[in-house]
Design a protein around this nucleic acid. Sequence first.
DNA 1: GCTTGACATGCAGCATGCTACATGCCACCT
DNA 2: AGGTGGCATGTAGCATGCTGCATGTCAAGC
Lengths: 254, 254
Amino acid sequence: MPTSPFCTLPAVTPNRKVFTVRPVDGTSSLTQQVIDSVREAILSGELRPGELYSVYQLAAQLNVSRTPVREAMLRLAEAGMVRFERSRGFRVLRRDPREIAEVFHLRLLLEVPAARLAARRAGPELVESARAELEAMRAAAKDHDEPRFMRHDRAFHRLLLTAGANRKLVGMVDNLRDATITLGASTVDRSRSLADIAEEHEPILAALEARDPEAVAGAMRAHVSHTGELLLAQVATEAGVAADPADIDLLHAT
Amino acid sequence: MPTSPFCTLPAVTPNRKVFTVRPVDGTSSLTQQVIDSVREAILSGELRPGELYSVYQLAAQLNVSRTPVREAMLRLAEAGMVRFERSRGFRVLRRDPREIAEVFHLRLLLEVPAARLAARRAGPELVESARAELEAMRAAAKDHDEPRFMRHDRAFHRLLLTAGANRKLVGMVDNLRDATITLGASTVDRSRSLADIAEEHEPILAALEARDPEAVAGAMRAHVSHTGELLLAQVATEAGVAADPADIDLLHAT
DNA sequence: GCTTGACATGCAGCATGCTACATGCCACCT
DNA sequence: AGGTGGCATGTAGCATGCTGCATGTCAAGC
């Protein structure tokens, strides 16, 4: 028996009226929908860490067959959000501050050199695009439109990454950003406002315009590192403890 | 119609005598077996890049049902080895030198700082284990036992990574190493012998024993960078062209 | 000959039936 | 009462049937 007999998860488009196969008809595949739905459910607390769930149960709740649910959970398991336990079901894993520290450590290792590289190769059009994104961030901040802000924030970072000319790296950082979101961690309106975050990007852009790779790297390091610190402190506070010094170390390790 | 009506892939354990489900009985899951099998088939050239294949066809050849094959291909698609094309099948992607450059660029960005961190935190037991792995590599080199050599090579690097204290990083580098193998790229016996490779690790270990983090980082950089250069040159030669300077740049970018 | 449209072919994605297995529970024995 | 074995329950993993879609092909019309 499920924990709750009828907790309606974020709700995948109800199918099953007709045989319904629509791999591409506007919406994405069922598997992808289930992934998104479960992600949200974990964030919203509807699926609780430590609890056992089953593919059967989830499929019933989402009103889809077990196959897409199974595939979705396998992918989430690969991403480390969930762990299958033989013949018992799967368990939503508990996220800990260490994980945040690790994610930001990795982002430092990848984004800082990528930013430096980008600065070396930067043409005027890169600078221009980056400025456009920053302006868009400021506008979104003024409107308190967090989703739009996040889109442009990501776009800004992605521009620098792409200019660094390593496609695999771009994909990895994208995954790391996803992981952060999935960790349920946002500094917005707790540690700092959207406007604050936007302004943290100004030094990066300024250094980029000055064609100073070391300055760009330094500014990027400061920004990412700062975000990581805030997040770490915030999560630790929520857990009612001080942040582990070892985790903080990771954010300053070269 | 398949390319060849009866090309026997590396051969997943033939099931289907009885209903057979053995998720854990000694061997791994069918999905995992299919993944391994397809990887090998791509390496051996049995599955050719550019060619279209289908889940149906592969399932028949491997003598398993479509489900595990489908799951396997989805995971390989995620890893970028293969791409699904709507209603047509999936295509084995062509690997290019750029990809090798990107993988080694990433390994530099991750392994060098991790090695530095490891050196800072190194206790005597780390040094001891590392030396043991290096000795095992030398022994395997003497026996010309490449698989055993590779195991210890990987173990050596993994020791340093683990000491760097970022679990996510360890996993990422592991994936990058897998990617290298999957690229079909090995410098063994073409650019250098097993013994040569083993000796490249000596400076790293020496610096580790001297507790000199910068020297460890430098030695690691030299080793990974050197491997990348050889691989790049080798692949380029096979393709009959000189290596792209931009790719070489990536291996020296800070 | 060239264009165009119906049909055949083959595909991925989803639904669902089935088996072996792990675990918890309860009755039965000591 | 406490310990133990058998059984009910629920699970993941695999097999397989089914549908709608994309593309290639071939024939009919221009």
